[in-house]
Design a protein around this nucleic acid. Structure first.
Lengths: 219, 219
DNA sequence: TAGATTGTTAATCGATTAACAATC
DNA sequence: TAGATTGTTAATCGATTAACAATC
């Protein structure tokens, strides 16, 4: 029972999303001093089948020890490796509104290895002000800044109408990845990674689900 | 060519997510004074096939007019209906850290019909303080508040370790929907809707994608 | 050892895409 | 009318689940 192929398969998005959840879970387990965990236990905690969990873990470069399940310490290490959680990533936040400023102040990011090296806005009144210890810079500086500081990922926290223009600017600056927080879809060339955490969109999804559940109830 | 069955099919999550994007897009089109849009144009703007777009629009209670494509005004109305965007939704924000406070101050929510009626934290030092015009309340008050104010949706913006406990409390309070912003998966009974916008998790996904693209480049 | 749990293959399910007659 | 574009069915693709021999 060996993990034959050395993690050469691309991880599909649904599996990748689940792996981030397992990562939070295994950290919790380690804090609780749990040494081993079975695929069934992981599945129960995440509303999945054990089969799905085992398929997901096939993407990791580690294997179960004996029939006690998976060693939590090794599990965490394998996940750290998948996420490059050893390395520190450089972030730029685009948009210094409430959300952008909160992200820049949010300790969670630095704690997880994501250091915010710059925050940008197009509003002249905001430029030059400080968010914590980070100075708000003009959008005109984005390109040079990304290149000089080797920014890996940009977080787009601007109004929806501006999102695509900002994305275009970032792509032209040579950014590797974009986290899109806006309601809008952004189009980028294939070499650039985009992941979404669209808060307002999620509220619309919830509205729909709640609304249709209520309608069903009336029938 | 009639939209025979009256929107009786449940919208699967991937389609629902795309519909939120079309919603942002059609608003942009209306501002630009565009009257008609084809499935192909929608597809191009969202990196999809026209076939997927037409399948998605089948979930809406509207139909194309002539062979010019879809009327943008009717399209927007159909989407508004799906999302219950006519109605105002009541939100509670759980967690008054940087992120929770930013959400409470973020004008975008109110503008979209999501009114924040309460914000809660477990830190005694924060309780009683104000975020804008909203007073931070104790977690002990969540249950009564949700019931008395008829809160529809709660946004969980607490540290990952606390997320499940908060979710349990919200479920017990009779909440209808939860927006989970934490790294962790939360488990809820089947009557409660959960949608996720996990910002830190998305950064991990990006890290992985960038990292493996770089490794591929070396081969 | 016997029981538990894995890694992996095959079967199922659901979502996306292709194809095309219908139609304005 | 002819061309464009739809609504809808069928085909394909990918992800999830079931099943089970391997094994500690």
């Amino acid at each position: 029972m060996s993990n034959s192929s050395k993690q050469r398969k691309k991880i599909p998005p649904p599996a990748l999303k689940r792996l981030t959840k397992y990562y939070a879970f295994v950290q919790e387990l380690l804090e609780q001093g749990v040494d081993y965990i079975s695929s069934q236990q992981i599945a129960d905690r995440h509303g999945l089948t054990s089969s799905t969990v085992r398929q997901d873990l096939l993407y990791l470069d580690f294997t179960s020890q004996s029939q006690r399940g998976y060693n939590t310490y090794e599990f965490k290490d394998a996940l750290k490796c998948v996420f490059g959680a050893d390395k520190t990533w450089k972030l730029a936040v685009i948009g210094a509104g409430n959300l952008g400023q909160a992200l820049a102040l949010h300790g969670e990011f630095a704690r997880r290895g994501f250091n915010i090296s710059g925050i940008f806005d197009s509003d002249p009144k905001k430029i030059g002000q400080f968010v914590g210890s980070t100075k708000i810079r003009s959008m005109d500086e984005v390109s040079v800044f990304v290149q000089e500081h080797g920014v890996d990922v940009a977080v787009i926290a601007v109004p929806a109408q501006a999102a695509q223009d900002v994305a275009d600017l970032l792509v032209a600056s040579g950014i590797k990845g974009i986290l899109n927080l806006t309601l809008t879809h952004i189009v980028v060339p294939s070499g650039v990674a985009v992941v979404e955490a669209r808060i307002v969109a999620s509220l619309f999804e919830l509205s729909h689900i709640i609304k249709s559940a209520e309608l069903d109830g009336l029938e």
